[in-house]
């Protein structure tokens, strides 16, 4: 896949403070790249540079074929940005906000513009409230309207800065599903900044973790798991546990350790490859007269990967 964003040694300093430190990465056309990192890692600053809101102190980036800084108006036209704060005019209605930004993004044909706005507001379930001032909207509604605004000119690239921040579980799921639709059905390329690792896990093709302005790692979730030697745990819940069953589990090739959780009546078996070992473990336990109630494979979550990598990086 061809890269649609190519950042090369992107750097931003504020005074003597280096907020973004020689970041090199690419976002491929049609993918969702998650940008993860602790507070102050430089995520927002990176997005702002890509949207031509601030200029890099060093390095450069090419966004949809245009070098940032060389033709900022064209770059801004090709990206849709969700800023960290919704950045909406609260005294204007939803429709007035959309209309202003649509015109600002050069949707000049009256008919096409109002059709596009209607389509988006309906999609985001805000059509009924279109004539209400934004000040009366809930946080989730504002966030949805801000995302609608980012989409109004059908930009090929979306830069989303914490789209689910501060939303209740229901609204966050709604926004998450929406991003999924945008990426899978509408084929937007999305750069997604988030602290919600579950969101990243569900949405991103690849993630990049940054810390103190520097890239820690970039890759698919599986690649990241491998990087930290993440271990897989198979949990086998049994009606009753005896030592014969523990021995039976230990005998299987590839099993590294077997822990017994008596109160839960459960075996926790560390393995490298779940696919290979799980059937054999279950077979051996059943052969030794164990009554298996459930089998559960636990892979390291993105959260574990993230925490471990950030911890290592900070050392």
């Amino acid at each position: 896949m061809t890269p649609i964003i190519k950042a090369n040694e992107l750097t931003k300093t504020f005074g003597s403070y280096i907020a973004v430190n020689h970041l090199t990465f690419e976002v491929r056309e049609g993918e969702v790249l998650g940008l993860l990192g602790p507070n102050g890692a430089g995520k927002t600053t990176t997005i702002r540079m890509l949207a031509c809101l601030i200029s890099p102190s060093e390095g450069s980036a090419i966004v949809a074929g245009n070098k940032i800084g060389e033709n900022p108006l064209v770059v801004r036209q090709t990206v849709g940005i969700l800023t960290e704060t919704p950045s909406l005019y609260e005294r204007l209605t939803a429709l007035e906000n959309m209309d202003f930004f649509a015109k600002a993004y050069n949707l000049l044909d009256d008919h096409k513009r109002s059709e596009r706005i209607k389509e988006l507001l309906i999609f985001f379930s805000l059509w009924e409230r279109r004539n209400d001032k934004v000040v009366t909207f809930s946080k989730g509604m504002k966030q949805k309207l801000a995302i609608a605004r980012a989409l109004v000119h059908k930009p090929p690239i979306l830069l989303l800065d914490e789209p689910t921040a501060g939303l209740d579980p229901e609204s966050s799921k709604e926004v998450r599903d929406l991003m999924k639709t945008l990426s899978q059905q509408e084929k937007y390329t999305i750069l997604l900044c988030t602290h919600h690792l579950k969101d990243a896990e569900k949405l991103c093709n690849r993630v990049m973790i940054i810390n103190k302005g520097k890239s820690v790692i970039t890759g698919t979730l599986d690649e990241l798991r491998n990087k930290i030697n993440g271990q897989i745990i198979i949990q086998v819940a049994l009606k009753k546990i005896n030592s014969k069953m523990v021995e039976a589990a230990k005998k299987v090739d590839g099993v590294k350790r077997v822990d017994v959780d008596k109160p839960a009546s459960m075996l926790k078996i560390l393995v490298n490859d779940a696919e290979l070992t799980t059937p054999l473990i279950v077979k051996n336990i059943v052969d030794s007269k164990g009554l298996v109630l459930s089998v559960n494979v636990l892979r390291p979550s993105l959260e574990e990967v993230y925490l471990k990598l950030i911890k290592e990086d900070s050392k």
Partner: peptide
């Protein structure tokens, strides 16, 4: 002050 400036600055208006 109202933090509406960022989205405005992100538009292709010079």
């Amino acid at each position: 002050e109202r933090r509406t400036i960022e989205a405005l600055l992100a538009t292709p208006i010079s």
